[in-house]
Write a protein that binds this DNA or RNA. Structure first.
Lengths: 331, 331
DNA sequence: CTGAAAGCGCTTACAG
DNA sequence: CTGAAAGCGCTTACAG
């Protein structure tokens, strides 16, 4: 790779002049400039971002930490992050934790040591201390989807309303025995969805019926097993709310196997839609999440934090977006 | 952030000694070492990878360029890449091109200028020249899934066999009018699957029936529209081969809407399975792709290329894996 | 308008 | 066993 020095030699000027010409950072005589451009082109010069980064203290890179990508909303969110990052001149480093706190710690350790100017994270909630340390050391963080630390900025969805509105929607459809498939309640989104579900049940005088099991929460099997559990708990069950689409697929499949017709005998809705709902044999009603937008907003928020001079510290920002109820055949 | 200098000052030694102690790169007196470790710990020292990178000419980062992540096999592949990268001490930078050649060029330009030690790419096939330039400049490249350039190493699937074997499998099931939903034939995987399909048809004396339309190829709608087209072309159609799962979902849905029963009246198989096939109301038979493994292998191949000294140039390597037929209800 | 010099934070021959 | 020095490739005050 050609360096600044090579270009300078070929153009018969000092490296500093080359730098100024190429970055348009101060006036350079047109003739000199032309010579420099020609030399740079001839050598196929590309500045070494590593050196620029070291010098300027910015590497124009953000780290993204997510629990998983495959068959999860995070793949769409990541696309939103990356697209916005590219627009703003930032590269996107990705780490997948499988929701393992140790892996998460490992990822954060690497990111903090000069890999990234800032971090977007959907955290397990087990490394709050590390996160606060990193922020204190000057690397801004934005929480995405999961708001586990109240003192770190975040972009989330109004999960309480999702749970709440889903119950009322099903009630209007005539359902009176509404089950919930949720997930680990130490994760904010699951907790909040359940809160919304419970409060709506109280308003309507209905009884709670929650499914839980020990399988990985973001899975087909989790939805499947919980559905069977909900059915055992209450044979007159007439509606199932799944926390995420993939659980919803499991619920639909379980109903099919039990010869329960959807939506006649059972209505199914997912609280985290990511388009797959519309692609099924019996398409699935869901609260659609503006995933791409959320990713973009998180990236914008983070870049703002990165580029704001240290002096004028900003306050926390907690952005809460809303899901959109998209009615399909399953209700 | 504390620097080497800070640690050196606190431990009353030279920075070089600190570096040697922390990296275990040569013998340091135990007492000195202890003092240095204590100092590093007290200051919460983390080495600046940017500086290490500049000094050593390695940033331990690879760039991954993919057309999309959401609802595509690439999200699973990326997880495989990232996991293996983490194991080998490499960070993963991701770029999503949406199969737009200009975006792809932009991503490559950034990656080549010091962002990455190597590149894994599922390319559009439109920037072959740029790819060869990058390789020539010393940044190794591995093609993944799509082998568009014969002179650049690759990890792919045996797409020809996928197409070929699917036809024979369906023939055995009694199908005689087998349609294919494919994609842009300038992309190697689609082209090869079609070649396999056609050769099997010739062997069996069957007639070709291919669907194509102008929608984005990796989509539900593409599968849906092509299915309707195939049905118009040949009303006695009794099997559909979809290039990817998501097209298969479209095909199943189209059949449902036309009151065609699966598998009694129509058998459906996907040539790029990524687990979602098993989660449907009518589960879908598919050629399952070892996506996670392919990602890991590509990362390993790339790291080997990166870490092999310039002197002993290696030959090209084209790794071709096989898919596994997973039979489910749709056939 | 341009050059010479210092320095970002590290590593690594070279001495001693 | 440890220090002093050079240098990775850049940018940016400081002179002139």
């Amino acid at each position: 790779m050609a360096t600044l020095k090579d270009v300078a030699r070929l153009a018969c000027v000092d490296v500093s002049t080359v730098s100024r010409a190429l970055n348009n950072t101060s006036y350079v005589h047109p003739d000199t400039k032309a010579r420099i451009y020609a030399a740079a082109k001839e050598l196929g010069y590309h500045p070494n971002v590593m050196a620029q980064a070291l010098r300027q203290g910015k590497r124009h890179t953000v780290g993204v930490v997510v629990p998983r990508l495959h068959l999860a909303i995070f793949s769409e969110i990541l696309q939103g992050i990356e697209a916005e990052g590219r627009r703003l001149g930032y590269a996107t480093l990705v780490c997948v934790t499988e929701d393992d706190p140790a892996t998460e710690r490992e990822c954060l350790a690497r990111l903090r040591s000069g890999f990234a100017d800032g971090i977007i994270i959907a955290a397990t909630g087990r490394n709050g201390r590390v996160l606060r340390d990193i922020e204190a050391s000057g690397i801004p963080i934005v929480q995405l989807v999961r708001k586990q630390e109240p003192r770190i900025s975040s972009v989330t969805l109004d999960y309480v309303s999702c749970g709440h509105d889903a119950v009322h929607f099903l009630y209007q459809k005539g359902c009176r025995h509404i089950g919930l498939i949720s997930g680990s309640l130490h994760l904010a989104p699951y907790k909040e969805r359940k809160d919304g579900y419970c409060s709506a049940l109280r308003e309507l005088g209905l009884e709670e019926n929650c499914g839980e099991c020990s399988l990985p929460v973001n899975s087909f099997e989790y939805g499947f097993d919980c559905t069977e559990q909900l059915l055992r708990n209450n044979p007159s069950l007439d509606a199932i709310i799944a926390a995420v689409d993939i659980q919803g697929l499991g619920a639909i499949r379980a109903c099919t196997e039990h010869h329960i017709r959807i939506p006649d005998q059972m209505r199914v809705i997912s609280l985290t839609g990511h388009a797959v709902g519309g692609m099924l044999e019996t398409s699935m009603t869901s609260m659609e999440m503006p995933a791409h937008e959320m990713g973009g907003k998180a990236m914008r928020m983070l870049v703002e934090l990165i580029e704001t001079p240290q002096g004028q510290k900003q306050g926390l920002q907690h952005l809460v977006l809303s899901a959109t109820l998209t009615e399909r055949e399953s209700t």
